[in-house]
């Protein structure tokens, strides 16, 4: 956990209601690590947790979907404006759990935290299949970025306007891709179905309404086989066989 002020470099619409926020840290070489950041907005008491899509020294890329008053306000912010972030939060996906061949399954903006994982797996020379599900063609994000790292990237849309029509679980059934470990992030209902279908050898990144985001308010507890755990600090990435859906 570290608080850091960032300056907005870019805040641009890249898909339906989805924005890419590129930020420069006040400290040029600062790289937070972790899975997500918790972002303070003027006029809103609680911070907004956003998963990290990409990071480099002094630079951070986040994707967000305009879903409520907070993200609506964030949409209106322009380059040069400043944001205070609580950074380096949460446990990220563990790339080392995959021995040879990984399967990445994303739903909507769940693709964002899978992207740094994909890059890590690619750098480690692991083979991969990426399956990304969206509602419609206009919701698609990061397709080219994933494809550049993983040629076997499949797009699935619920309305069939791009890629395979249906749900990611339909596509997984049809493809039955080889993998020794899978990683998933997306809506809970999707992840639950994916985990049920793919078994215990995987990790899922959970989402919950958060307070502090850093493990000291106990507002975002989730159920695991080991008892209640803080989504923000003990997760948000949990082993699939430990999650009680």
């Amino acid at each position: 956990m570290k608080t850091m002020d960032y300056t907005i470099l870019e805040n641009r619409c890249i898909a339906r209601q989805v924005f890419r926020l590129v930020l420069a840290a006040d400290t040029a070489d600062f790289e937070p690590g972790g899975e997500f950041v918790n972002l303070a907005l003027d006029g809103f008491f609680l911070r907004r947790p956003l998963s990290v899509c990409d990071s480099a020294p002094g630079r951070l890329t986040l994707l967000y979907k305009v879903a409520g008053e907070g993200t609506e306000a964030l949409r209106g912010m322009t380059p040069g404006m400043r944001l205070n972030l609580l950074t380096g939060l949460g446990k990220a996906f563990d790339a080392s759990r995959c021995e040879r061949r990984a399967l990445l399954v994303g739903g909507g903006l769940g693709a964002a935290p899978l992207y740094p994982l994909c890059r890590e797996l690619a750098a480690a020379g692991k083979e991969m299949t990426v399956v990304l599900g969206f509602g419609s063609a206009e919701d698609i994000v990061l397709e080219n970025e994933f494809r550049a790292l993983c040629p076997d990237t499949r797009i699935v849309t619920m309305d069939g306007s791009a890629g395979t029509a249906g749900l990611v679980t339909d596509a997984l059934k049809e493809l039955s891709p080889a993998f020794d470990f899978y990683y998933t992030c997306g809506p809970a209902v999707m992840m639950r179905a994916v985990c049920a279908q793919l078994g215990t050898n995987g990790q899922a990144s959970l989402e919950e309404r958060m307070g502090c985001g850093a493990g000291y308010c106990w507002c975002c507890t989730c159920k695991t086989t080991g008892g209640p755990r803080r989504t923000c600090t003990d997760g948000p990435v949990f082993d699939a066989d430990k999650i009680v859906w």
């Binding site: 609680l46 907070g70 958060m210 307070g211 507002c219 507890t221």
Partner: peptide, 13 residues
């Protein structure tokens, strides 16, 4: 174990 989630909500101030 506490109460079920969601157990936090943002409000004005």
């Amino acid at each position: 174990p506490g109460n079920p989630c969601p157990r936090v909500a943002d409000c004005t101030a």
